[in-house]
Nucleic acid binder design. Structure first.
Lengths: 206, 206, 206, 206
DNA sequence: TATGAATGAGCATTCATTCAT
DNA sequence: TATGAATGAATGCTCATTCAT
């Protein structure tokens, strides 16, 4: 993870099993509190308390509150990236429309799962700041995605592939995030995925 | 704008000219500080100082720090909405592709202008919360947009117009926001607008 | 009223009728707010607003917030003192038990009427402080009361009249104030007055 | 003392000796400052400073400024109640006049010792409000006092014992408090106690 | 005289972080 | 290593009071 800011990386790598457990407790507590009440409301003392750990121990594994948030985002990004990469690889051979629909469905799933951590937390943590949008899904997967696009180069009508990748990606992610944020909306998952896939395919192939 | 949370509305309406000037100074100072250093770094005392106004005066017109942020967002939304509405109305009669391209260009402009206030501030202010994404551009313009779509109903191939509106909108806004946030990207405004317009038109008409 | 602290006396004596009306409005507003919400909650701005007067005007007639409180107490004390003095004078000729009972009943009435202003306000206003208990009823009436006692000197068995006056007075006032403060108590006005009168008479005459 | 308002109860129970010491320092500092300058003048920062403790520590043990006042009153009440109860029990067997005189002398002592905390502080702290007069000495001791009265039932001439208890109690406390507040008075402790005892005994037995 | 905009010292309180035990 | 007591800079906000208009 070379993209991380040094200052935010874990203070020491937990070597014993017990230590790893402590770290997990802290992250678990932090996640649940942050999701429930937001980043500002999640005081380090409260996180430690919920984690069943002393505040002193918390600071033994995380150098600052921001480091906890960073780890949370990092974890979510890693998991989501891995899932997505596998999904793309698994669909390399399939016809473009089908592959794209499947991939979009997976993106919807992972973003729903890590909703808050993914989309809102980074904005609330000053030092994480703009980091996330670029560090996340996008950059990590660029090569995989590019490979996928090249695989279907002959079907794709858009000339500049880089721009196409950019627009297509944010078409997908922008719609999905808006969908997840707006709980008054009257659209089903199915409909959303269909429409987004439709838009992407038309954009790339017509 | 009756959608505002009561608690965040201005404390008292400035009646004298001097008072209005004070309010303007406060909002100006707040905006510049928040843009430069973020919401948390913008302390009310600092805002007052930069505004050349006493902290007491600040609190005479804004009941809380959050109320200042709310006013800032409110202003930006109002202006952007107005610009966009006029643009849509002015392009009602034009052919779809041309109209859409023009509208997208205007959206890029307004979002660039109010970039931070629009997109990041709301996330950093707890009580503004999720409000913004829905309260903003989207909801306010739905009727105008819907009229525009109906104007071109025969050209549009997508069956469910509501879903089309949703996807098209976030296709546009999602891409533009990502573009504005990512200052490492190698795409020009022109290219971006062209591609987004291309994607929207294809999505709607093919 | 030579006992007043100079600093707390009214800033200027209202000479015109309109001015007197303004002063009355201010005192009225202050009283109702203070009774409802306490002295600290009664901000000068709020008092002015309820009085229908600008804050500037308020400060034209009262040099400080404390001066308003002082005026309030002063008024209540004056009225109560006057009532009490008249009552004592009117009962000079009557037999001791009957006179005392009547006087105690009147004290109950006046203290009930000016309850808060009388008993609690002084404690909440630093500069009024200890003032009140001594400045109030007691001192003002000492001469009248002493005359009354001398009138009945032959019936009174207590040697030291000064001490008797002190104890008798606080016997009465202490019980009445406690009675007025405790609204869970199951005693009627009649019973209370009877018992207090009984205690005083026994104390003085047996 | 379950009569306390939950909100005002201590934030966390000091577990280590060092912590208990801190709490004691805070209460000590608070008491001396409040007695010297009143509740409003006693800022939390000043209390912490005088206590030789950081403001953070203060808030670790007391949830608010009011909670400190509550603890102070609570302590004073506890001590005074205990002393009084023991005194009454110790005098159960003695003849009424002697017992009453002793008890009154003890009340004078305890009230003098906790003078301010007891009598004035509660009035200055909004949330403590009326609480004190009822919660204090009176209510807590009612049963003990009643037992004492019943012990001497045959000597007591007053029919309604409840009313007698009420009047007698406030006769005593009212006079004592007035005596303690008025430092211009020319009465000795001895004289005061004698007269009050005299009044009570006459009231109850004649 | 009346107005109300402006003032600013001062307060209660929070919370990330440290360090003695 | 773990604990949790202690720290204190920093913040949002109030309100009595002044003064230009």
């Amino acid at each position: 993870m070379e993209h991380q800011i040094a200052e935010l990386s874990p203070r020491k790598v937990p070597q014993q099993q017990r230590a790893q457990f402590t770290v997990d407790c802290i992250l678990g507590a932090a996640e649940s509190i942050i999701i429930k009440s937001g980043y500002d409301a999640a005081t380090t003392n409260h996180i430690a308390e919920v984690a069943g750990v002393s505040i002193g121990s918390l600071y033994q594994y995380f150098s600052s509150k921001e480091a906890i948030a960073a780890a949370l985002v990092e974890n979510a990004v890693s998991k989501a990236t891995e899932v997505l990469r596998e999904c793309i690889l698994a669909n390399m051979g399939k016809p473009l429309p089908e592959a794209i629909r499947t991939i979009i469905a997976v993106i919807l799933e992972t973003r729903r799962e890590h909703n808050f951590i993914f989309m809102l937390l980074p904005r609330q943590v000053p030092k994480l700041g703009r980091l996330s949008r670029s560090v996340t899904t996008e950059k990590f997967l660029y090569n995989t995605v590019r490979t996928f696009y090249h695989q279907h180069r002959d079907e794709i009508m858009v000339e500049d592939l880089e721009i196409a990748m950019f627009v297509a990606q944010h078409l997908v992610v922008g719609s999905i995030d808006a969908y997840l944020e707006d709980n008054t909306i009257l659209i089903t998952d199915e409909q959303l995925v269909d429409h987004i896939a439709d838009a992407v395919v038309k954009y790339l192939t017509k």
